[in-house]
Design a protein around this nucleic acid. Structure first.
Length: 565
DNA sequence: TTGACCACGTA
DNA sequence: CGTACGTGGTCAAC
């Protein structure tokens, strides 16, 4: 280890209003984006520094001007989220946390055009840092009007990165690796937003028509069609035709009127009554069509699918809890029925890959349970677990899931006790996380991310409400597994991104344990092979020697809905 | 206009 | 439904 990740190879890049600056050990320049971007491309090709920015989003203008994808980054916002938990990570907060300045005295971010007395009192016109150690409130906005200030801004970023990296290294070397892959994931999020998900528009439009009917020519026509759809349900309940199907309370009253007494009108409750009264079946069918026409209908198609037939939405590299990626505009919750409308464009294919049984395999790594690790050698992890427990495979599967997620219903009892005996190390970790969560303690994932006690769960004091204590426990137990799985997934995706780029492959969808790579047809097999190689690389780095096997199911397809090869 | 709740799609 | 997310509907409070 000469100095991989050392300050020497960190170069801060900032951009504001068409001007940009780079600051590192061997570089200190400011200029227009058009001047700075080629310098970045040159450095990337030669010394290959790790780029530091306040967040990939702030640096997006520069990143896109460079043209070629940048691989190595230290994203201060993502690093802050890993180290300190939560989602807020604006520069003032990042700076304060990195320098140990109390958040309670942090200035409110100002628009930059208002005269701020408190800031003016404590900071000179050219000072970036206030007397109390905080960044000036307008640092990221109006203040950045000269190249000197831009250079200072880059210097501050570099300073934060060095401090964060020391902190991460102190926690564990793995935490440094987590920041690296989180930073790459943040870059990938920009590319996902820019690139979009390829769609076969005529097919998608046809699917929508199947559920929601043809495009309405006017508001009036749409209202007529809506009433006609409603009538298909309401004809089953004569005398109650005025029921508003979009109002759950009215629906519940309507159902009670025909003898269907339910606590709520959720699908999984009503499913049991499909045979009891025909209105139930009609209602559930109506809901399906209503979902498509309101959320995934023509409005969605027109607003979210561009003229180039790409579905676009915002992406974030991590949520505020365990750290999974999030996506907007249906990219993460597109109904399965619409997936045949997602198709590779001309001359291209999708290389689709998903991680098999990722959460129990992750449990084997994070717990260090040697016996459970042994089970991951099988393609189907539940088979060896079943034979060890002396139960059928479905029972073993339910027991493992129950142990990880704390399922309270169902009959997993006996098998759960078998798990405790067979895999005491893995089960012990889950139990400790649960108890720690009950006490309201934040968790840290295997990769070093701090997971704060979940939102609403922090409101009541420990012990005041047994139901809330149990919810905290479940949250914590789930977070250490879901969070670690998210870390491995991102490490994998970042590796695929780096390897597939030179072949013209582009990651177009990330779905928690599934990747969709859009690639030139003639490179299909090559890309499919590198996806598996990337998993071997990423899991070896991430699991750091744990004898745990991860498996990907990889296939080359043209439509997302297509079965494996 | 905003926030709570319901409902439901995905993993 | 174990957890998480985003979206859109209604309703009550502003």
């Amino acid at each position: 280890m000469s100095h991989p990740g050392g300050p020497v190879d960190l170069v801060a890049a900032v951009v504001h209003g068409g001007r940009a600056a780079l600051v590192g050990a061997d570089v200190r320049i400011a200029g227009s984006v058009a001047e700075v971007a080629p310098r970045m491309a040159g450095l990337a090709a030669t010394s290959g520094p790790r780029w530091v920015w306040w967040s990939a989003r702030y640096a997006g203008e520069l990143v896109s001007a460079v043209g070629s994808p940048l691989a190595r980054a230290w994203d201060l916002a993502e690093a802050h989220r890993v180290l300190h938990g939560g989602w807020k990570a604006e520069p003032g907060r990042v700076w304060a946390a990195a320098h140990g300045v109390p958040l309670s005295t942090m200035p409110e971010p100002s628009a930059g055009d208002l005269f701020d007395f408190s800031a003016a009192d404590e900071v000179g016109p050219d000072d970036l840092v206030r007397g109390d150690g905080h960044l000036r409130a307008d640092a990221a906005s109006g203040w950045l009007e000269t190249d000197d200030r831009l250079l200072a801004w880059a210097g501050a970023a570099l300073d934060c990165a060095v401090r964060q990296r020391d902190r991460a290294q102190q926690l564990s070397p793995r935490t440094v690796g987590t920041v690296h892959s989180e930073s790459a994931a943040a870059l990938m999020c920009l590319e996902l937003e820019w690139g979009g998900l390829p769609v076969d528009r005529p097919v998608m439009e046809g699917l929508i028509a199947d559920f929601a009917g043809p495009r309405a020519a006017s508001e009036e026509a749409a209202a007529v069609a809506r009433r006609e759809r409603d009538a298909l349900v309401l004809r089953h309940v004569p005398g109650r035709e005025s029921t508003d199907l979009r109002n759950p309370q009215q629906v519940r009253d309507m159902l009670a009127g025909v003898g269907v007494d339910v606590p709520n009108t959720r699908k999984w409750v009503l499913d049991a009554y499909r045979q009891v009264h025909p209105v139930v079946d009609a209602l559930l069918e109506w809901r399906k069509a209503e979902r498509i026409s309101t959320t995934y209908g023509y409005r969605w198609l027109d607003q979210c699918v561009g003229a180039d037939d790409r579905l676009r939405g915002g992406w974030t590299a991590c949520d505020g809890a365990a750290g999974r990626m999030t996506a907007e505009n249906g990219l993460h919750n597109l109904p399965a029925a619409l997936r045949s409308g997602v198709a590779a464009h001309a001359g291209h294919v999708f290389v689709r890959a998903d991680l098999g049984q990722i959460e129990p395999r992750v449990l084997a790594v994070v717990s260090g349970d040697p016996v459970f690790a042994e089970a991951t050698r099988a393609d189907d992890l539940y088979a060896p677990v079943a034979s060890r427990l002396g139960v059928e495979r479905p029972v073993a599967k339910i027991a493992v899931l129950a142990a990880m997620y704390g399922q309270r219903s169902g009959a997993a009892g006996e098998a759960l006790r078998g798990l405790e005996r067979a895999y005491p190390v893995a089960m012990g970790l889950l139990d400790r996380a649960y108890e720690s969560g009950v006490r309201g303690e934040p968790q840290r994932t295997f990769g070093g991310r701090l997971v704060p006690t979940g939102r609403f769960l922090a409101t009541s004091p420990v012990g005041a409400d047994p139901a809330l204590d149990a919810a905290r426990g479940r949250f914590a137990r789930n977070a250490i597994i879901q969070g670690a799985a998210a870390e491995l997934f991102k490490a994998w995706a970042a590796t695929v991104r780096a390897l597939a780029g030179p072949l013209g492959g582009q990651i177009v969808l990330c779905l928690h344990d599934e990747l969709l790579v859009h690639a030139p047809a003639e490179k299909a097999e090559e890309v499919a092979a590198l996806v598996d190689r990337a998993l071997a690389d990423a899991s070896r780095r991430w699991a750091a020697g744990a004898p745990v096997r991860f498996v990907a199911d990889t296939s080359v397809i043209t439509r997302w809905s297509d079965a494996k090869d």
